[in-house]
Design a protein around this nucleic acid. Sequence first.
DNA 1: AGCACGCCGACT
DNA 2: GTCGGCGTGCTC
Length: 761
Amino acid sequence: MADDKRRPPTRQLWLVPTAGQAERSLIAEVAVKTPARRLYSYAVPDAWRAVVRAGTAVRVPYGRGQRLTDGVCLRVTTQAWDQTQRPLAAAQPGPAWLSESLVELGLWVSEYYVCAPWKTFAALLPSRLRTPRVKNVPYLRATGAPSADRLSTKQAALLAALGNAEMRRADALARAGVSAATLRTLCQRGLVECLSRAEPVPRRPWPTQPVEPCAADAFELTPGQHDACQQLLAALEPADAFRVLLLFGVPGSGKTEVYVRVMREVIRRGRQAIVLIPEIALATQVVDRLARRFERVAVLHSQLPARLRCETLAAVAAGEVDVVIGTRSAVFAPCPKLGLIVVDEEQETSFKNLAAPYYHARDVAIKRGQIEHVPVMLGSATPALETWYNVQHRPHFQLIRLPQRVPGAHLPEVQLVQRHGPHAGPGDDMLSPRLRAELADTLAAGQQAILLYNRRGYAAYLRCTKCGLTVRCERCGGHLVFHRAEQTLKCHRCSVRVSVPPRCLDSTCGGRLAQTGLAIQRLEEDLRASIPHARLLRLDSDTMRRREDYQQALRGFENGAADILLGTQMVAKGLDFPRVRLAGVIDPAAALSLPDFRAAERVFQLIVQVVGRAGRREGPSLAIVQTAERPPPVIAHALRMDYESFAAEELEQRRRLYYPPHVRMVRLILADPRPNRARAEVERLAVALRDRATRAHAGLRVDPPEPCPVKRRGELLRYQVVLRAPHGASIQGLFDEADRGKDLAPRVQRFTIDVDPVDWL
DNA sequence: AGCACGCCGACT
DNA sequence: GTCGGCGTGCTC
């Protein structure tokens, strides 16, 4: 009796044009623009039959009202229509770019990275392809009203052409062979009604790519390169060619040339290749060197305007492009007959997407290779430990060594210099006498030097001399870095800039603020003062605002416009400078104190990269690693450029500490503006997870919840809990349960799931 | 994400 | 009594 308030859910029946044949209807499975982690099914009305395919953008009724929502059709099946499925409202005619295998890949990304299908496919397709473009088209309809006056021949013709149906205005006029004037009189007399219908606009045909001249293979391969090519070409042979080949070679061993030769063969067989490159490499020689060697090349980068991006992708989908070079999202390039994926510098962290879906392009590439039966080639001098581990433990992974450098490229001699005591502050020489002496010799010989000091700004932070309070960012709570040239404090995380406060921020204290900790601008100042005749070029994200600045600066240095290139990690990547005799790395071990279990790996990579910058062609060269204290073990391995020993030791360390690649890791971030909400919810979540971990998921470990390293982001207070499990599957299973049970859905404003995180901010 | 429903407290 | 805040659940 009291129950009449609780009506049973109304199962509305939906009228579809195909109602007569409900037994065998076309049903579209659609990724709808919603956070729900599932697909929805819609009936395809007859009118859209010819248009709707996997990959078409559609508009569907979603939610209570009649409001239409964007969606992407992922599959079309013929099945019984269960009458709760509403008909879709519109679809975009034209080429659909999602092949069956790209749909499969997208659904895998969606599941593995625990992300709503729509969000995933949004990352896969440019926005212009996700929303059907709709235009209002004028229509006409005969009202059927009796006419008072006699009709002219033209008027009669128009009415005859219209008949009983609605017709596009332009079509009707053309068919009747009359002008708009005739129509106007008919309208005025109320015999014809003007309507407007929203219709999808067919997209313009895409222009093809301009063909660039391409250089021939003028190089003689080294024996190592030749061997590597043979092994790689052999991998192209089998029917199911999926395998992952790690091309492991020191900097300067000619990996690019090996890619080129293998890609040539792939193209010769009528297939396409994708080359993934790290973000930074776009500004470097790698792209040029690759692109110049092929005729039908498309370069995809993040700053490409939407329209151009669409055109490029369309050309790719049409098979007009043999080689796609691009950053992480290029892994989804719609190549019709993919033959090879290359991931250059596969250890680079910029392959990890920074927003949902938090995919790692290298791992997606491997999955795509598996789906499309295509080999994947990873190239690196310092492979990610995940990759190194896979090569040793997984059947589909294969190691290919590229042992020597190409002729004339010698690795520099690497030396360690200890500079005792921490960098104290002003007045203290940041460079050791040894490094100074080598710098002087290099300049005297008319050669160039690269110095890497991986810390932006002038002073790391400001501290009150009286109470010890440091000046922090209002948005994220991190230290603000003093930039002397601009006389501002900058937050390197949220790029907030504030003016320098004259006194301690605690008004009851009001003590004097002192610059503490050294950074690259101080080093620059020191160098300019102590070696005034040297031409110094500082390169960091403060001096380089745009990509072009960066490229121009590097080209300038290459042409001898400066003697010393001083920079942050920016200078370590991607460019060869033949005249560099000296490379100096200052205090690389400082990064080891970062809250990141990959810190040692990063330090190793950075040193090897910088060392690789020196001494590529002309004569002997030297690399100096300057550390403040006794060097930690990672430095010793880096000095010997001995990746394999480093990897063995580091892997063992990670095994003991239960870290990747021995386990899978997931980071859950809860953010909420209310003071205690995120903290309370993260505690609750951790308890719920631990409960499950003991019951169903063996090996799942739930770390104690904690504030994120960046405790705030604007209004949001952030907490995290990290999960580790021997297999990814047990973590995915957990979140499938979360969709059913409620206890894994925290009640916070923002809940982020980062699978295989690389970033700890 | 939006939108409706239901439960609470503050008000005419 | 009724209005409206917010927390919760659902969308083929």
